[in-house]
Write a protein that binds this DNA or RNA. Structure first.
Length: 261
DNA sequence: AGTACCACCTGACGGC
DNA sequence: TGCCGTCAGGTGGTAC
């Protein structure tokens, strides 16, 4: 599931459940998920500390220990963060568990192991090293226009390019383009200033709304494309038929009547 | 700079 | 029930 709204929901969940609790143990460490980091080091840096604050940039979640370093999580396609299920819902796919003093255990699960776990001393350097663009939820109009400036590619590929703007994935790219009434294959070049401003508005609106609803697909507005992501379903706006095409190597759903090429 | 394709890994689902 | 192809919300590399 994890695009920006999901990661933001995980961050809020972490803040509500796991901050300021001593980490008594680090369990179920999946070493395949660690890059440039051993399970021993991870344990040594985490046990006895507590998580004191959090950040998110695009699809990356950061949690700062009072010992200094930040724990970094990326959720790939199947990652989840859960602090309720004390026994952990999903032992098979659990990749990291922080046993918290007097509270729940914070469990990171990732069936397909496409996510990752890191430690970093400097979040901004971590972000820069990965070449991430501005965060899509918080980027201001000027920053967004800047990011699009001079781009010649298809608009959907551009929105999903994490080094241009960070946090938009396949599902929400479709949702944003549906609201902005732009066809996914439309070259960015062809969007005038007004269309770009509208696109920025929809980026913030769609991601913000989804995050506030915990990225729960069942809670998305009926006026959205998301509940209608199936070929032939009625467009919630015009009643036309939802179409599925291939765009930038992924499935794209759109309403061909609302989103002209 | 942009695109298309492959790989990573582990499934779920439909057709036969 | 088993086998096979296809698809899945991410990212990184390669080749053109």
């Amino acid at each position: 599931m994890p695009e920006l709204p999901d990661v933001e929901a995980y961050r809020r969940h972490l803040v509500a459940t796991a901050l300021h609790r001593r980490i008594d143990g680090v369990e179920h460490v999946s070493t395949e998920m660690l890059t440039g980091l051993s399970a021993t080091t991870l344990r040594r840096k985490l046990v006895g500390t507590s998580l004191e604050s959090s950040r998110r940039h695009g699809k990356y979640l950061f949690a700062r220990t009072d010992g200094g370093p930040w724990l970094v999580l990326h959720f790939g396609m199947t990652g989840r963060l859960d602090c309720d299920g004390r026994a952990g819902g999903d032992r098979d796919h659990t990749r990291l568990v922080l046993a918290l003093h007097g509270g729940c255990s914070l469990a990171f699960e990732d069936q397909r192991k496409l996510g990752g776990i890191w430690l970093t001393d400097d979040v901004d350097r971590f972000i820069a090293a990965r070449n991430l663009g501005p965060d899509a939820l918080t980027v201001e109009k000027a920053g967004f226009l800047d990011a699009l400036h001079g781009r010649r590619g298809a608009v959907k590929a551009t929105l999903m390019n994490q080094s241009i703007v960070a946090g938009i994935g396949n599902i929400y790219a479709d949702e944003i383009l549906f609201h902005a009434r732009v066809h996914p294959r439309r070259p960015v070049q062809q969007l005038d200033e007004g269309a770009r401003v509208q696109l920025h508005r929809q980026v913030r609106h769609v991601l913000g709304t989804a995050a506030d609803r915990n990225a729960d697909p069942g809670r998305m507005p009926r006026s959205w494309l998301l509940p209608r992501r199936t070929e032939g379903e009625p467009c919630p706006r015009c009643g036309g038929r939802v179409e599925r095409i291939r765009a930038s190597g992924r499935s794209a759903y759109l309403c061909p009547r609302c989103q002209r090429r």
